[in-house]
Nucleic acid binder design. Structure first.
Length: 551
RNA sequence: UGCCUGAUUGUGUAACGGUAGCACGACUGUUUUUGGUGCAGUUUGUCUUGGUUCGAAUCCAGGUCAGGCAACCA
């Protein structure tokens, strides 16, 4: 293989654990709560967890952290499974925290029996108040001293549904003065009458995250439980539960979550964008969701490559969107079928072309010698881009203008002779003559031109619609922007454009990736039909001319 | 005011007491029937003050800055 890539801190830990014989093999898990769609931040975690297992010869479970029925739904479970598969990963077991509800309940009873948990009748407000603040120790209440027998009975009654929602909770008895707020007698169970998407109405008490997650890891024999930085203060509790219960010691490790420029990465905010119709749906191609990116035309390979490149560390980060764009372009350049599409057309008449029409050939992908070619009809009446003609060309402009010559891609070199304008001064027609001996592939004209234009034969063109996407937000770093994040939504994140496409596109497979020459990479939209072809722009091509013009 | 993390070029990420490297971005040049791609090159960095050491991004002490922690959310 190639030279060794340095290990990130988690790989470092794992290789030591393996070398020391602490574990014979590793087992990781990806544990989403099914309360929303997965986004590119989850992709980082998925690639990490599954990637670790692949790299070190272990396995990964997919576990749904479904301990809060009020927010969760089967719809999300299904989408999550689809997204993980699409990214190219296979889980060893499909698990649910709800599968462990009986076991978890038994664990809670064990804690009570050890005098390490108690039923508290206080209200949420009272409990919050009694917890104190980070600088002021908490104070206990009378419930803390209930007898084991009483706690056992009360907890059984909680389970049996003898109390109303919120009337009682089960708490761990740890340390109300702990400098770690999470150790100040954290809640273990709450009463909540809600329909659970898997257990139905079987339960009216549900374990809290802190009482479910570590134990679920332990039950599955997860060796390395990897989560994001905000769970660092939970680790003490994670370890406490495992130790007091005397169960398999899974260990938690934390890394920094992904942030990206020009977008948001929280399920809550993404949900808001959907619910308030700032975007069409969870899979709107502007969304940073996996489903949105898939619909936009991102490939799983490019997303995995991206996750590889951003690395894993503990420091807060914000990744440039341009890195993601680089990754897709790099992959798409290798696999995309080249096609010609004109979006803002002006008519080009080739005055000396008297053959009527002919069929030319153009390569599907210059990067792929085996990519073959396609037929492209040519005639004396073409569409070219309006911006490819300039009445008074500027100095570095090497496209079409009066007296200037360019090549029509895969066709002939032409020279512009004249043009027409309407009353308002808009160019309506451009007239040119072609050089018959300059035909693509058999050019003997000796003419050298700097520009090559894409084009479409007017009478052969088929109408298509292009969705040209731009960034969802107008500021780079939403986390430092003041006020509501929605104030920064880019009002021009979508341009729907009508365009003329070469006929080959009508017969192309729905699943193909395209590069529309000089315009960008496109992918057929989920709602596109034969009669109404719609393409989503995945990403533009790099455009050094646009950059030059800005100067 | 407490506790916990962290700080390396514009952005990420390496260097595990011994040459601060890589990628993206930006900028040059070159190739090109896509102003794409490819190729070659340039560019900017160890938060700060002390200390240990022949030698510190790395170890120690203090400071600064940033983020997290007081949901019957995960």
């Amino acid at each position: 293989m190639s030279e060794e890539k340095s290990l990130n801190f988690i790989e470092e830990i794992i290789s030591q654990d393996l070398a020391s014989g602490k574990y014979a093999s590793i087992l990781t898990r990806f544990p989403p709560e099914p309360n929303g769609y997965l986004h590119i931040g989850h992709a980082k975690s998925i690639c990490l967890n599954f990637g670790l297992a692949q790299h070190f010869g272990g396995k990964t479970n997919l576990r749904f952290d479904d301990t809060n029925p009020a927010k969760e739904d089967i719809e999300y479970v299904d989408s999550i499974k689809e997204d993980v598969k699409w990214l190219g990963f296979e889980w060893a077991k499909e698990c649910y925290a709800s599968d462990y509800f009986d076991q978890l309940y038994a664990y809670a009873v064990q804690l009570i029996e050890k005098g390490l948990a108690y039923v508290d009748d206080s209200t949420a407000e009272e409990i919050a108040q009694q917890k104190g603040t980070p600088t002021i120790p908490g104070t206990g209440n009378a419930f803390r001293n209930r007898s084991i027998a009483e706690n056992l009975a009360l907890f059984a009654d909680m389970k049996a549904g003898k109390f109303a929602d919120g009337e009682k909770v089960l708490r761990a008895k740890i340390d109300l003065a702990s400098p770690n707020m999470h150790m100040r007698d954290p809640l273990l169970y709450r009463i909540k009458r809600a329909h659970h998407h898997r257990t139905g109405n079987q339960w009216c008490i549900y374990p809290m995250y802190d009482f479910a997650h570590g134990q679920s890891d332990s039950i599955e024999n997860i060796t390395h439980s990897i989560c994001t930085l905000e769970f660092i203060p939970h680790r003490a509790l994670y370890d406490w539960c495992i130790e007091q219960l005397g169960i398999y010691p899974s260990h938690q490790y934390e890394f920094a979550r992904l942030n990206m420029t020009y977008t948001v990465m929280s399920k809550r905010k993404l949900l808001q964008l959907v619910e308030e119709a700032h975007v069409e749906s969870w899979d709107d191609p502007r969304m940073p969701t996996i489903s949105g990116m898939r619909r936009r035309g991102y490939t799983p390979e490019s997303i995995r490559d991206f996750c590889d490149r951003i690395g894993i560390a503990k420091r807060e980060n914000i990744i440039d969107l341009s890195l993601l764009e680089f990754c897709v372009r790099e992959h798409l350049n290798k696999i995309a079928q080249r096609r010609m599409v004109v979006t803002n057309p002006i008519q080009l008449i080739i005055t000396n072309y008297d053959k009527g029409e002919e069929v030319l050939h153009s390569e599907n992908n210059p990067e792929d010698p085996n990519g073959g070619s396609r037929e492209v009809p040519f005639s004396n009446e073409l569409w070219i881009e309006r911006e490819d003609f300039m009445e008074v060309p500027t100095k570095k402009y090497f496209r079409l203008g009066p007296g200037l010559s360019v090549r029509l891609k895969s066709a002939y070199i032409i020279t512009c002779d004249s043009f027409e304008k309407d009353a308002e001064g808009n160019i309506t027609k451009v007239f040119a003559s072609y050089h018959p001996d300059s035909k693509s592939g058999q050019d003997t004209s000796g003419i050298h031109v700097k520009g090559t234009l894409h084009w479409v034969s007017a009478k052969h063109a088929i109408p298509v619609v292009l969705n040209e996407y731009d960034r969802l937000f107008s500021v780079e770093d939403l986390s430092t922007a003041e006020g509501d994040f929605k104030d920064y939504i880019n009002p021009n994140s979508l341009h729907k454009v009508k365009a003329y496409a070469e006929p080959a596109l009508a017969n192309d497979s729905l699943d193909a990736r395209f590069q529309f020459l000089r315009k960008g990479y496109f992918y057929q939209d989920a709602k596109s039909t034969k009669d109404h072809l719609v393409f989503n722009r995945t990403v533009t091509l790099k455009d050094t001319w646009a950059k030059e013009q800005k100067k």
